[in-house]
Measured scan of single mutants.
Amino acid sequence: MALNTPQITPTKKITVRAIGEELPRGDYQRCPQCDMLFSLPEINSHQSAYCPRCQAKIRDGRDWSLTRLAAMAFTMLLLMPFAWGEPLLHIWLLGIRIDANVMQGIWQMTKQGDAITGSMVFFCVIGAPLILVTSIAYLWFGNRLGMNLRPVLLMLERLKEWVMLDIYLVGIGVASIKVQDYAHIQAGVGLFSFVALVILTTVTLSHLNVEELWERFYPQRPATRRDEKLRVCLGCHFTGYPDQRGRCPRCHIPLRLRRRHSLQKCWAALLASIVLLLPANLLPISIIYLNGGRQEDTILSGIMSLASSNIAVAGIVFIASILVPFTKVIVMFTLLLSIHFKCQQGLRTRILLLRMVTWIGRWSMLDLFVISLTMSLINRDQILAFTMGPAAFYFGAAVILTILAVEWLDSRLLWDAHESGNARFDD
């Protein structure tokens, strides 16, 4: 018995066209964080690309023209004298008006014999932002004059995390709450300039795509075929072959399989920071003279006294001054041990922890910024005066060393310790 099946006739004509040209192939790229070699397709503007294995951002879609970056830099340069030299806060102490600005706080630190601690604050609040705007201006002028731009481009990517104007702005709020127990506070004209400078700096850093600047100024022929001998440069993120001198053909720094002496430098910085954190938390970090009496505060006791007036601000200072430094030390110690013992479990967790400490590390400088600003506000000789204690130097040095330890660690070593050939990683 035959089955009668109805015929289905399409209502619209289906047209099949042959592909007349070869589909576009992607360029081969190595991930600078996990060293995976993959094919990167062509990316349009405002599109980002991520590593298929570790999800690290390979290409950032946010990109401004150099002219727009230069305009932002010149605007920031105009704001800087007002943000640093004009009063941020006014207080009335014992019937006398006192003005506080950024430069005055750094000068008070240096004047009291601790120039190293003052230079830490100076670099993060004044030096690094000033280098940022002058570097962008150098790129703008240098591109037109045919100057060598490689050193500036190499420095810009590392400079971003040292620009800490946003953290200093939080420190202004913390210092205001600490001082309000002794005097009446009012915002100064410099505060508005400083807030504007923070906003412009944040926007500029978020749109400063150094890798795209490398592509514009020093374009290189990408690798179009897969080759395990391809290496990625950690300076400019170019994937290719080393030249005859073993250097990256684009930025001219040595092109090595792994960062040289990464573990040794990381261990040295980490152990030194552990040693410095002990006096930083045991010795007094601030000293207040009130009517001839002397009151010393460690980091913890200062947080407890701050909690009596504002528990939320005390929580912020606790996280930045105690929780973050010790968390960074514990995480980095764990990561280094996992590399030495070739741990194969929990790779995803370790990668996330490394990215976390990379982002939060700079916030530990908050305590030094609060001390710097408070020193310029309260300084009335023996009637009422505020000065920093010996722990300030140890704390600042420990924070900087932990930042350097994270920067010096080559994250690809975590993958080397893991089993080879993993296309995915999980716990």
Rank of each mutant, 00 (worst) to 15 (best):
G26C: 14
R258K: 05
I274V: 11
L290G: 01
A269P: 02
M80R: 01
N281K: 05
A405S: 09
V357G: 05
F122E: 11
S301L: 08
F217S: 13
H252V: 02
S262W: 12
I58F: 06
C124T: 14
S193Y: 01
R362C: 06
I274D: 09
Y218T: 05
W92F: 07
W363T: 04
L323W: 04
T349A: 11
I199E: 03
N143C: 14
I177N: 04
P254H: 02
R258I: 04
V357R: 00
I43F: 13
D297K: 07
Q244W: 15
Q47A: 12
L257G: 04
G146F: 03
Q29K: 13
E211F: 10
G171S: 13
I14C: 11
R231D: 03
L278W: 06
W408C: 05
S372M: 15
M120L: 04
D410T: 00
L66P: 14
K12E: 13
M164S: 03
M120P: 01
T15P: 12
P87T: 11
I383M: 06
L255E: 03
T327E: 02
R144H: 10
F318V: 07
E212C: 14
P87H: 11
A314Y: 13
L94S: 01
F141H: 00
L230I: 09
M103T: 11
T374P: 02
F341C: 12
W92G: 04
I322F: 14
A223F: 12
Y168N: 15
E22I: 11
Q108F: 14
T374F: 03
A312T: 14
P325I: 02
A392M: 05
W267V: 05
L3T: 13
L352I: 15
L165K: 07
G246P: 05
G142P: 01
R158Y: 08
T5H: 08
G113C: 10
H207Q: 14
I14K: 08
I316D: 02
W363H: 07
G346V: 14
C31K: 00
D381I: 01
D410V: 00
R348F: 12
G315D: 02
A397V: 03
D181V: 01
G142N: 01
K111Q: 09
H207P: 15
E22S: 14
N281I: 06
P284F: 05
T201V: 13
S376Y: 04
A398N: 08
L414K: 02
V232E: 07
L257T: 06
P279N: 07
N379G: 01
L335G: 11
T298D: 05
L3K: 14
D381A: 13
A398P: 05
S411R: 13
W415L: 12
L88T: 03
G171A: 14
L413G: 05
D35R: 02
A56F: 11
L230H: 13
I91L: 05
L159Q: 02
F393W: 07
R17T: 09
A49Q: 07
Y289A: 01
G389K: 01
H261M: 08
K13H: 15
I14N: 13
G26D: 13
Y28D: 13
L404F: 05
N4R: 09
T358A: 09
I403L: 13
I96L: 08
I199D: 01
F425Y: 15
A73M: 14
R362H: 05
H46C: 13
P129W: 03
R216S: 07
L159G: 02
I199F: 13
E407W: 13
S411C: 08
L139M: 06
N281M: 05
C266W: 01
I351C: 11
S39I: 15
T5K: 10
D410I: 00
D416S: 10
T201A: 08
S193C: 02
Q7L: 12
Q186P: 02
L234Y: 12
L130D: 01
W84L: 09
G389R: 04
L277E: 02
M76K: 08
D60S: 10
M103V: 06
